[in-house]
Simulated scan of single mutants.
Amino acid sequence: MGPDAVPRARVDALLAAVPARDPETSRPESLARAERQRRRWATQVAVADELARRECAARGLKVPPEAPAERLLTVAGNDVADLGSIVAAALAHSAAARVLLDALEAERAVPETDVRDYYERNQDRFLTPDALRRGVDPFEGTVPDDVLPYESVREGVLRELRRAAGRRAFFGWLDLARSAVVYAHGHEHPGDPAHPDHEHRH
């Protein structure tokens, strides 16, 4: 990252906060490989944090004090599944990343037609409690009273679609921002096929 390189201490702090996974084997070469991958993973989280800090500064966004690295221990499993482990950890660790994600989400415009279309295509998500108790099949045999009215769920659907759009924008921003990063040897992305023990795991 040029003269503004991320200090090694920030990577070390992340490594200290997140315990290593139990190795599949106790062979020294396997343990060394696991530790290399852990450092590459932590580097990606630290880089995402630094890039988010710079982007927030460029946008004039106020960032609250940083959360302690220990917050990484509480990353939810469904967030890892939805976002990937690096982005989920970056959002858990980095106040700047969360502020930026919120800003990107707020910028998303969701057309009313998209909200209505989502409601119409996902009627199974909007069955009334009575319909659920009766075991109504949402894909056939429903009557209007079996489904919550559009007006009562519209705001929730809008929030969900805007959140998804904000996440897509965050992914796009991060991919572009990381494309200019130069990594020190041993700190490359853990899924980088340029090194022999790469892996891509979420």
Rank of each mutant, 00 (worst) to 15 (best):
P111L: 04
L61Y: 02
T142V: 13
L174E: 02
A106N: 00
A20C: 09
V115D: 01
L158S: 05
V75S: 08
D130T: 11
H189E: 03
E105G: 02
D130F: 11
A57E: 14
R116F: 15
R154M: 11
V115N: 04
Y118C: 11
V110H: 06
Q123L: 15
S85H: 02
A9H: 11
D146G: 01
P7F: 07
A164Q: 09
V157A: 00
S152Q: 13
Y118T: 09
A89D: 03
P68G: 13
L91R: 07
A165W: 02
G2C: 12
A69Q: 05
E107T: 05
D102C: 06
H93I: 00
A67T: 11
L104R: 07
Y119K: 08
H202V: 10
W173H: 06
D117K: 14
A88D: 00
P64H: 09
A42M: 06
V157D: 03
R54F: 07
A9R: 13
T128N: 08
G191C: 01
E160T: 10
V6S: 07
P23M: 10
H202M: 12
G141N: 09
P65S: 10
A180S: 13
H189Y: 04
L61D: 02
V75T: 12
R162M: 06
R178Y: 03
R159G: 04
E70A: 15
A46C: 08
V11Y: 03
M1S: 13
P138H: 04
A58H: 10
S94E: 07
A16W: 10
P193T: 07
V136E: 01
P23Q: 07
R39M: 04
R133F: 12
L158R: 07
R168N: 09
R163L: 09
D79E: 14
R71Q: 14
A169Q: 05
A92L: 03
A57Y: 06
R201H: 15
E120F: 14
D197Y: 12
A89H: 07
Y183F: 09
H187S: 02
A67C: 12
